[in-house]
Design a protein around this nucleic acid. Structure first.
Lengths: 345, 345
DNA sequence: AGCATCTGGGAAGGCGCTTCCCGTGGGGTC
DNA sequence: GACCCCACGGGAAGCGCCTTCCCAGATGCT
């Protein structure tokens, strides 16, 4: 293609090819303050295409002092909750010509700190922390400091979950959603509830448990049994199995997310229970790939992709020095087959 | 923290703080060829920690001529198939202190080209192309050229799917897996098959369809009906609905992936069919979150996370100039409830 | 004709880091 | 004790690009 220079094509090569100066070639691409005559610009672009020029990202980053990369930190990318958020972030990022670097903490929240630091070093334009905050003041405080350092370095930080840090936040209204779900279930006639809760240190799990409690209390129902399990399919499965061996007379089990609910569903089947006749079951999130389980799962729909898009929108629209903004995301209760109207006794 | 310099902390700041030269500070971190006296090294590391120093990634990339970023390009990150591969890549990348930049083509294969080019500009150390190749010679040829450019620039390219390019490849043995599945199903007594195929231009879909055909033919069974649908839940759903309105006397339907199979399952239920009594159904992939659907789905297990890990291993272990390597991934047929032994008539 | 305005080009500076090269000091060898 | 070598610290070049300064030429306006 170009036999002259050895390594990758540089802007100088493009300028030579087009017969213009380096400065003009640069202006042809980024033309901000100065204008470049149309025909010259075309020549440059043509030369670039001919040489298959791709601007050196690190060099640009260095000269400009910032990149067009945003970091997305999730707990576990193979969890469909985060995969859906990631899809939303990706879609919005593409429109803005931003690249997304993915970090996965493998469900170890302390790893968020490392990622934020690494991304600061990378001069990422922003970091999106997707996923529940954790009840750990020490960790929270260190994270606050790390995020502050990130912002001092000129980046933005957006959180998707709880508003626990002085940052732009997409707040997921887990508690009110869970409360609404519980009230709807109560209105369907269910009375004796159990909750399959996630790890209590995860605020998302905790908020949902509390919301359900709120809703049941508001409906005048007794406090539910709460079991703690991992925030995964196996967590739901194991918690449900324990529940089935020890508890009797339950109406309705609410898992704090769909993945756990599906695990619980499997545990019920293993135990020979017939759903929903023998027991009603509900989840949370409305994970797309789980919408076809049978019986169809009552849940609270969260617009996961839109949450990702919203986070990226906060990244791109912020103005310097502005106080941190909040976007509230409400869940929508979806009553489906797994919680039919309960025949009155 | 340090009131002197305005912007982010630089290596010079650390060197000053530690009372050593810039060169020494740099060597304290990377000290490969050259050694630094132990006490000086500790002083530098201490100073770095004190100042909360994070090395400037772009600057390092520029000086070294390469980054520690690998790009992962998938068709759709919200598809659990790709999410699982991504999880494997992430895990392996973490061990190697590599960062992963995610590209999602939104199922438009031609966008792979753009991503490869962008990642070349970013001086990514490698690109992993996860996802089916496409039957489009023109596109394939352009992709070959773009990948060659990437490798000329010093990066590596690894493909997960079919061996269609002269690159390191994690070959998924879709055809033999599908063939084995079909033969097992035949041995269970099924005779009249239909296939819910994906888009024919996707080689993964095509290979699986062909494998099933092979297996049925080997078992002496008549050629199956094949319907084409999108490679998604809705694709499976719609294809199954069409199948149910037009075809009679089917034994067993095989969808070319689990997501489609679950969509098909829903369509069957909508039509009042009872699975597996009225119809057997099988999928492909063994997607983790879909293992609990009822009836449990017969499928071909693919070690998705391990495929991601293997791809990253190819990225890190390659030696210059070596001919491209191949890692074959075999599927494992899992017969489950959705295809019970068929009572002989 | 005189002046303001626009645009291209050359050149220099700087981003933060790695690494080559030089110089010095200490230890070993005969 | 002279010599050599090695180890290691420090100075400085250079990675590719963007930006800016300044000058030259062209154009348009009064």
């Amino acid at each position: 293609m170009n036999a002259m220079s050895p390594g990758p094509v540089t802007l100088q090569d493009v300028a030579n090819e087009a017969g213009v100066s380096l400065a003009t070639a640069s202006r042809a691409f980024n033309g901000s303050t100065r204008k470049v005559r149309q025909d010259l610009k075309e020549r440059v672009l043509l030369a670039a295409a001919k040489l298959n020029y791709a601007a050196n990202g690190p060099a640009q980053a260095m000269a400009r002092g910032r990149t067009n990369v945003v970091g997305l930190i999730v707990h576990d990318i193979s969890d469909p909750y985060f995969a859906a958020i990631a899809a939303g972030v990706m879609r919005a990022a593409e429109d803005q010509h931003l690249l997304v670097t993915l970090g996965s903490t493998m469900r170890r929240p302390e790893r968020e700190l490392d990622y934020v630091q690494v991304l600061r070093g990378q001069r990422s334009r922003a970091v999106i922390l997707a996923g529940s905050r954790v009840d750990d003041p020490e960790l929270l405080s260190r994270l606050r400091e790390e995020c502050a350092a990130f912002e001092r370095a000129g980046g933005r930080v957006v959180v998707i979950s709880q508003q626990k840090l002085p940052l732009d936040t997409v707040v997921v209204e887990n508690r009110s959603g869970a409360r609404a779900l519980a009230q709807r279930l109560a209105s369907l006639g269910y009375q004796r509830f159990a909750i399959l809760g996630g790890p209590t240190r995860l605020l998302t799990a905790r908020d949902r448990v509390q919301g359900i409690r709120d809703g049941l209390a508001a409906a005048g129902l007794p406090a539910p049994v709460v079991l703690e399990g991992a925030f995964t399919r196996d967590g739901g499965h194991d918690a449900m199995r324990e529940l089935l061996t020890s508890r009797e007379g339950l109406d309705c089990v609410v898992a704090v997310n769909d993945v756990m609910a599906v695990g619980a569903m499997a545990a019920c089947r293993d135990a020979g229970l017939h759903l929903p006749e023998d027991l009603a079951l509900a989840g949370f999130d409305d994970i797309a790939t789980l919408r076809d389980v049978h019986p169809k799962l009552t849940t609270v729909r969260l617009p996961l992709e839109r949450m990702g898009e919203t986070a990226l929108e906060l990244v791109t629209t912020g103005t310097e020095g502005e106080p941190h903004r909040t976007r509230r995301i409400r869940g929508e209760v979806l009553i489906r087959e797994s919680t039919p109207l309960r025949p009155t006794r």
